[in-house]
């Protein structure tokens, strides 16, 4: 297992995507440890008043050559809002790499279905799949166009399908309404986002008898398996989202 580290990384960029989303670019002084898609980091939030715990954020992209990490973050409260105020020259303390990543399995074509900030782990996953000679197909959902952002990086990796609840971009409706789910010939699915969406994708995968992994967003405190707060009931008993997950095969979950 890769040794976890606590490190101050240099913020080299903060790209605002829309009102709620931003991408932090961080640089380490050392070569990065092995980081796999679906893994996450626990970020320390300074000066956010009375927030106390770190914020678990999954890896959006990793650039090994320049020791660079990118994190896609959505502002949901005072902690993430404070992270959104970081800029070039600031440092960000994080514990990483954490968690059990997505699994690479046999097959050619894979559906990567994500809603909201669940999109975050899908870039690194898509890149990893493509490097392994597989075909990632992205299906992303959002409330409206305002909640979406430039998806060029995903488009470079494979087809991208969009749904919005108000129809302002892509197909109107939920991810689970998109016809690609029926017409696509997938060998497996990966999903991250709201639980009803992941459950629907899991059900679809079960029906088609294909591989399916989801990344859960259980509330976490420590991120390293000590506090036992992010419990997830599974067929193998109680598991911890931070060390046994956040990625689980849906066959393991009691859904």
């Amino acid at each position: 297992m890769v040794k976890k580290k606590i490190e101050d990384l240099l913020v080299t960029g903060n790209q605002r995507l829309n009102k709620d989303y931003f991408i932090l670019t961080l640089r380490s002084g050392d070569p990065l440890p092995a980081i796999f898609p679906g893994q996450f980091a626990e970020l320390r939030v300074n000066h956010a008043g009375d927030t106390f715990l770190r914020r678990p954020i999954s890896f959006y992209d990793v650039g090994r050559e320049h020791h660079e990490i990118r994190l896609l973050i959505r502002e949901v409260g005072s902690g993430t809002r404070q992270l959104g105020m970081l800029g070039p020259g600031d440092t960000l303390n994080m514990i990483y790499p954490l968690g059990h990543p997505f699994t690479m399995v046999d097959g050619k074509e894979f559906l990567l279905a994500a809603g909201g900030v669940g999109i975050a782990p899908m870039l690194l996953l898509g890149k990893t799949l493509k490097q392994a000679g597989k075909r990632p197909v992205f299906l992303f959902g959002a409330r409206s166009k305002e909640q979406m952002f430039d998806l060029t990086e995903f488009e470079e990796l494979g087809e991208v399908y969009i749904t919005t609840e108000d129809g302002s971009m892509g197909k109107k409706g939920m991810i689970t309404d998109h016809p690609i789910l029926e017409t696509g010939n997938f060998d497996g699915c990966y999903s991250c986002g709201p639980e009803p969406m992941m459950k629907a994708i899991a059900k679809l995968a079960t029906g088609k008898e294909i591989f399916c992994e989801v990344s859960l967003e259980n509330m976490m405190a420590c991120g390293i398996g000590a506090c036992l707060c992010c419990a997830q009931p599974t067929v193998h008993g109680m598991k911890m989202a931070c060390v046994d997950g956040p990625v689980f095969n849906t066959k393991e979950l009691l859904w």
Partner: peptide, 14 residues
Amino acid sequence: EGNPSPRMTETPSG
């Protein structure tokens, strides 16, 4: 097995 989830929530300074 402990209690059902959610088992944790952040509160002001704790």
